[in-house]
Structures are given as C-alpha cells and as structure tokens.
C-alpha cells in the first residue's frame, strides 16, 4: 500500500511541472490539440484549482463551433464528437464551481449538439475512434448532466442517454469485455473506458431507480467488466504489454468500480500493483507512453489524474471516489495542494 504523504508530495511536484508546461497545453497561450487541453483541465479540476484557471475554461468556450461542438484542433472547427464530449464534460463540472453564464450557454449548446448527432441505434460516431469508445464519451457527459445538471437539461438528455447506455450494454461480450475488432481487438482499453465512463454512473445517481430501473442488470454488467479487467492484468501489474495509457485507464476504472460495487477486497491488490508499476516507470518529471520512452504531456496528465483518484479511493467515504468522475454532487478537491506560482493568465484570442 502506498504511503499517502509520498503520493501527496508527488502530486504537488507533478502539478508544478504541469504548470511549468502551461504554454504546451493551454489555449490561453495559443492554438492547441483539444484532447490535450481537456486532459490538463481535468487535472486542474481534480486538484481543486479551477477558480484560479477560469480563463482556461473560457478559452474553451471561445473555440466552440456553430454546431455546439469542438474540432480536434482549436484552429479546425470541424466537429469531433470524442473530444467535444470530453470538453463539454469539463465545462459542466467546472461550472459547478465557476457558475459562469457563458459556460452555461456553451453547455446547453453542446447538449443540443449531442442529441442531434446521435444515431438511431444509440451510438455516436467519430471517424478517429471506435464507435463504442466514442459513444462512451457523450454518455459520460450526460451522466454528469443527470447527476449535477439543471432539471430542464436532465429532462432533455434522458432518452438519448438511455439509448447510448443501451448501445454500450448490448455490446458487452459474455466474458465481460468490450472489443472493437477494427480498433481495439484486445479490448483492454475499451473495457476500462466503458465501465468507468458510462455504465457505473447509473448505479450512483440518487434517483437511479427512476433514471435506470434495470439496476440489477447494470450491476451485473459492471461486475463482469470488473472481473475481466482484473483478469487482463499482467504479472508485473501493467496492462496491454506495458502500455502506460491502458494501465492507467484500467487502474482508474477499478478505483470507481471497487467503491461503487463494494468490491474493495478483490480490487485492492490489483489497484496497488498497477500503481506500483505506474510509479516504477515514471520519469523524473512526467510519464511516458511506455517504459524507457520520453515524457508525454497527455500521459503526464493521466498520471496526475491517477494519483488524485488514488487519494480519494483511500478515503472512507466511497462517494469521494465517485465525485472524481462527477457522478454525484459536490466539488472535487485535493487537500494539500501547493499551488505553484504561475504567470497571471489572461485570455488570448484563440
């Protein structure tokens, strides 16, 4: 079991590193890939530092296109559903703190975009991603709309959310995995994504029995996914041939599953082993995609998110872990953040 003070110190030093890399992920300092922006915003959100970075969220709003979506790159407005759902998710979660009217309007626009963009069978499509993976992102956004959104939004998204969730649960394999033969034949990453981003939330809402009356079925889906994720782990603690991204995804997925299903006993050794491996192959600052490779900013954001989620996983109250995904009300925070001195941020034209 990790020493919590060591993890806290690590979060602080990695957070300082991320802030020092500000110009490489921030829209405020110029055009960016929107996935890297979303990854960095998630760290700021989970570190409890949103108020000091409002300009970053407003810069995201400034890049929203006419349809209510975002492009994969800030300077290319062609709607990219996968990245758009991640950004919309960051907006709604941060706006629980910021309560900014511009952000509220932007969230509403993106809700309309996703309702319109959904296909008849419940899926969403993004040519750069497998359909299952793409679908899990708007479902995840709508999970948070249902958990913390305005009542009128909840009404609006419910039908679409149910159809998206059904598409996902209908496509689970009997062994508990989700596999996409074109993009993810091993199924590790897809399984990790789909449980934590989509299905598990339906067991967490206070009004879950009205929103998703098939609770028992959904519980089984998550339990099977959990068993499969446990079985995917390699002897050394990693996933998918020492793949840092997929190990981080799988570990985080087990963090939320274990607390919601009260399966801590079964998952603890798996989570701890995965984290040991993640920390063993960390670079002096940041994380690489694979051991021995150069540091990658997106993976570094994931690594910080892993640590921030591990911290709450160790807390007594299971809801603290769920809060890290936004599936219950309340503000995620990290007690003990030493906020590094950053330059005064102002909004630039993006």
């Amino acid at each position: 079991m990790q020493n919590i003070n060591k993890i806290k110190n690590l979060i602080n030093s990695e957070y300082a590193y991320l802030m020092a890399e500000h110009d490489n992920w921030s829209l405020v300092s110029g055009s960016k890939n929107m996935e890297i922006v979303a990854h960095a915003l998630r760290v700021i959100l989970h570190a409890g530092d949103v108020k000091h970075h409002e300009a970053e969220w407003l810069a995201v709003v400034d890049c929203q296109n006419e349809e209510g979506a975002w492009g994969g790159e800030s300077d290319n407005p062609k709607s990219a559903p996968w990245a758009s759902a991640f950004l919309a998710l960051m907006l709604i979660r941060a706006n629980a703190i910021l309560k900014n009217k511009k952000i509220t309007a932007s969230i509403e626009k993106s809700i309309d975009f996703f309702i319109k963009d959904q296909k008849a069978d419940g899926r969403w499509i993004d040519p750069a991603w497998a359909d299952l993976d793409t679908t899990s992102h708007p479902v995840s956004f709508f999970n948070v709309v249902l958990a913390i959104g305005e009542p009128k939004w909840k009404k609006k998204v419910l039908k679409s959310w149910r159809a998206g969730l059904k598409f996902i649960t209908d496509n689970q394999n009997p062994d508990g995995s989700w596999v996409d033969k074109d993009f993810h034949p091993t199924g590790v990453e897809t399984t990790a994504h789909l449980v934590q981003d989509s299905v598990i939330a339906s067991l967490c809402f206070p009004d879950r029995k009205e929103v998703a009356p098939n609770q028992d079925e959904l519980k089984k889906v998550c339990a099977k996914g959990m068993e499969k994720l446990i079985s995917f782990q390699a002897e050394n603690g990693s996933y998918d041939n020492d793949n840092m991204d997929h190990t981080m995804d799988s570990m985080r997925s087990l963090v939320i599953i274990s607390r919601v299903l009260r399966e801590e006993k079964k998952c603890t050794p798996v989570i701890e082993k995965a984290l040991d491996w993640i920390l063993e192959y960390k670079c002096a600052q940041g994380w690489p995609d694979f051991p021995g490779m150069k540091v990658n900013l997106e993976r570094t954001c994931d690594g910080l998110d892993v640590l921030l989620k591990y911290m709450v996983w160790r807390e007594k109250d299971w809801k603290q872990a769920v809060r890290r995904w936004g599936y219950v009300t309340g503000i995620p925070s990290f007690k003990g953040l030493r906020r590094p001195k950053t330059k005064q941020l102002s909004r630039a034209k993006v």
Partner: peptide
C-alpha cells in the same frame, strides 16, 4: 502495425 494507443492500423 496497429498503434498501441487507440488502434489505428
């Protein structure tokens, strides 16, 4: 060759 991150082939 299938990319190890998101499966482009």
């Amino acid at each position: 060759i299938r990319c190890p991150l998101h499966g482009w082939n």
